[in-house]
Design a protein around this nucleic acid. Structure first.
Length: 580
RNA sequence: GCGCCUGUAGCUCAACCGGAUAGAGCAACGGCCUUCUAAGCCGUAGGUUGCAGGUUCGAUUCCUGCCAGGCGUGCCA
């Protein structure tokens, strides 16, 4: 409807241009918006104010000319000039209810746009497979999964991807941690390294390794630890690297056993965890595959050809400062190993090679320093950095009964995403994580998330949905007649009913806006408002009245509200219960 | 020091990319259940949009400076 009205206004502007009141070069796009105040009609536009200067007349005078030039339309009942020069438009009654019928015609597809033919990739979570996901990963997971849904609804082709960091030093630390626990099972008097991975799951993996391998991987801990440096605060990194080196040498080919076991089982766990959370991935992309395929070397070679690399202090550097970075970055260390950043370069090249129009990265906010260098790398490789979109997700603070929960990741005492889901449920989890703008801090109130009151937005919205479902039960005497409802819908005159119709009409543009701006929270706010509109109506107006024309008209409206609530909640990954 | 982000009601947050009288929820106070789920609704009160300038018909929004907070600033991942 907005588009229709905008088209009419554009036509009016064209007429004014013909009449010489306005210069064609001064024409600006027409913007039509919903009014906040019902006394301002249904739609409003600021075209008169936008063009006042160019036309050389006061906005209100220009507004009069525009209205005079406005082509007649059955949709528009009246126009009005208000305030500094707004043109307010009131829509015809049946036009106001048109979205309701459209919503019911389209059902689950309502709010979904036509296919755009744009290919998008959303990479999210991508947590190191060194342990179970914790609550810090939850927000990225919820946000990413919702974004995937929104972009699909927007009409884009979307591929969701998880980047598996299975090639770095952290994985070696993990493997050696598991191996030590394995030795422990065999009765070796080990001393666990400070920098090793703590946590029960490591011990469990050690036991599993024992079950699978028996004593075949047994080496004396005394021999292993023979020539290691001191494991104190200052040297813990050197210590664990030496330990890894030692164990690797002693195990030889067998080194991959603890490594693979740890990687595989943790990845399986993450996979299952995310699946239960409603976060699904089309692709689990292995960093190691970039090493194996030679992609890293060839990316470095490409940069070298382009003259973007130089050697200093025995290391190989990428001149990222040419592309706006603060300092240059190392791609190959003096010990010959490539850096994590080198993998990232190969990875971005791989993404571009796969032909995505838009490449979205969702990162924790602590990674914001990497934005510039990734884009720099893309540019140096000859790709358009504009196609890379990086969204940062701020951390969430958990509160229970007003008290902030402390979490430490390394000690192994962190709150896992799974335990959070068990406590508050998937629905509340998904909703609370995305209800705020992603790049802002979030206070996640566990007490509120589990409360069954209107204060809890999840229950509030779900309750509206359940209420509608219940109304439709028990109509056996006089079944709901959809045709009768549709035929009589324009006879509904309560302000609450008009408000609901307008709100339903705003749903598709809300989804579109959320998708285009990559801001999932606007959908949450929308659904809360729609639920509030419904509750207000429900409280003040009885739906099941004796007059069947009115009753079915109201049921039709309620049904449309239900469809929108259902569709919106589905995009958020939240269930829409029939009863509560 | 430099870079990025944030600052709106007592609290947690919105504000349709510059629009009309800045909106919700919580907390506070006062009302509404013999009628479709009170897991709900209605009302009252609450503001110098961090501060100071600038841009223009018009600024919470854009620009500059200052103040306060957060994050980042590895040959870690």
């Amino acid at each position: 409807m907005k588009d229709k009205v905008a088209a009419l206004l554009t036509e009016a502007l064209d007429r004014l241009i013909e009449d010489g009141l306005l210069d064609a070069s001064q024409k600006k796009p027409v913007h039509v918006e919903n009014t906040k105040d019902p006394t301002h009609g249904d739609l409003a536009t600021n075209v008169a104010m936008m063009h006042a200067k160019a036309a050389g007349m006061p906005p209100r005078v220009l507004a009069e000319h525009i209205i005079k030039a406005l082509p007649a339309s059955p949709d528009i009942v009246s126009t009005d000039i208000a305030g500094p020069g707004f043109i307010n438009l009131t829509l015809a009654q049946d036009a106001a209810f048109a979205p309701v019928l459209q919503c019911l015609d389209q059902g689950e597809a309502y709010g979904h746009q036509q296919t755009t033919d744009e290919a998008w990739q959303v990479e999210y979570v991508s947590a190191n497979p060194t342990g179970p996901l914790h609550v810090g990963h939850g927000r990225g997971a919820a946000y990413g999964a919702t974004l995937v849904n929104l972009l699909k609804a927007r009409g884009h082709r979307v591929e969701a991807e998880y980047y598996v960091n299975d090639a770095g030093r952290q994985m070696n630390i993990l493997a050696v941690s598991v191996y030590l626990r394995y030795l422990e099972v065999l009765g070796e008097p080990i001393v666990f390294p400070r920098a090793g991975y703590q946590g029960e799951y490591i011990e469990t993996l050690g036991q599993t390794l024992h079950t699978q391998a028996g004593t075949s991987l047994h080496h004396s801990y005394a021999l292993i630890s023979q020539h290691l440096p001191a494991d104190d605060e200052a040297h813990q990194d050197a210590y664990i690297d030496a330990l890894i080196q030692q164990v690797k040498e002693m195990l030889g080919d067998q080194w991959m056993r603890p490594f693979q076991l740890a990687l595989q089982s943790i990845l399986d766990d993450i996979h299952a965890d995310l699946g239960d959370f409603g976060a699904h991935f089309d692709q689990w992309f292995s960093e190691y595959s970039l090493v194996e395929s030679g992609a890293i070397e060839s990316a470095i070679e490409t940069l070298k050809q382009g003259g973007h690399l130089y050697t200093k202090d025995g290391a190989l550097w990428f001149r990222s400062t040419d592309f706006g970075d603060d300092k240059d970055r190392v791609v190959r260390r003096d010990n010959g190993e490539t850096t994590y950043f080198a993998s990232d370069i190969a990875y971005i090249a791989n993404k571009f090679a796969r032909g995505f129009d838009r490449i979205i990265y969702i990162w924790g906010a602590d990674h914001h320093g990497y934005i510039v260098r990734i884009k720099a790398a893309a540019q140096a490789l000859g790709f358009d950095p504009e196609r890379i979109i990086i969204r940062l997700v701020q951390f969430a603070n958990l509160y229970r009964d007003g008290e902030r929960l402390q979490m430490s990741t390394r000690s192994g005492s962190f709150v896992t995403l799974r335990s959070l889901r068990e406590e508050v449920g998937r629905d509340a989890c998904r909703y609370f994580y995305v209800m705020r703008k992603a790049d802002q801090h979030l206070d996640f109130d566990l007490s509120l998330a589990t409360s069954e009151t209107k204060d809890n937005p999840v229950y509030y919205i779900q309750y509206a949905h359940a209420r509608i479902c219940r109304v439709f039960e028990g109509l056996a005497d006089a079944p709901y007649d959809a045709d009768r409802g549709r035929a009589n819908i324009t006879a509904l005159t309560h302000q609450d009913e008009l408000d609901l119709a307008t709100a339903i009409g705003r749903y598709p543009e809300t989804v579109m806006k959320a998708a285009d701006s990559l801001e999932a929270h606007v959908l949450c706010y929308y659904l809360q408002e729609l639920a509030a509109d419904f509750h207000r109506w429900y409280n003040g107006t009885r739906l099941l009245v004796d007059d069947l024309d009115t009753r079915d008209a109201r049921l039709t409206l309620a049904q449309a509200v239900r469809v929108v609530l259902h569709n919106g909640l589905t995009l958020l990954g939240v269930s829409a219960p029939q009863s509560m």
